[in-house]
């Protein structure tokens, strides 16, 4: 039960942050490429790499495993999971393709994937520096 609560709390904060960040970016870049969702997904993927690595480092340094696992759930599954979104990214690509902008749609789908996976790797490396 505590697991579900911390995931929900992290996810709520993450989703609200995504809504605000996406809205601010959207207000500055109207039309064309969905930069808001792209930025949110890249930043969230970098963060999950950092946070997951740091939490595992905590356990190695002797932090209690139950505390670490609650922390991991709140920050990675909750916060980063709620902050990033696959459904909106997919929907935006589909809408771009439907409006005839197939190249932008492909660039969004493949670009988001490539950059987020790279960002997660970078995050793991950065987390390793501090862990």
């Amino acid at each position: 039960m505590i697991e579900l609560l911390v995931v929900a709390a992290g996810g709520g904060v993450g989703a609200a942050a995504r809504f605000m960040v996406d809205g601010e970016i959207r207000a500055r870049h109207s039309g064309g490429f969905p930069w808001g969702t792209f930025v949110v997904n890249v930043v969230g993927s970098f963060l999950i790499g950092v946070l997951a690595t740091l939490t595992f480092a905590l356990v190695e340094r002797g932090a209690p495993e139950d505390v670490a696992s609650v922390l991991l759930l709140a920050l990675t599954v909750g916060l980063c999971g709620g902050f990033t979104t696959f459904s909106t990214a997919t929907m935006e690509s589909v809408r771009l393709a439907q409006s005839g902008r197939l190249r932008l749609a492909l660039a969004n789908s493949l670009g988001t994937l490539a950059v987020t996976v790279t960002a997660a790797g970078l995050g793991m490396a950065v987390g390793g520096l501090f862990g």
Binding site: N41, G82, T85, T88, T116
Partner: peptide, 9 residues
């Protein structure tokens, strides 16, 4: 649905 799906994982 935004919270249900995830890109970071």
């Amino acid at each position: 649905l935004g919270g249900f799906t995830t890109y970071s994982a």
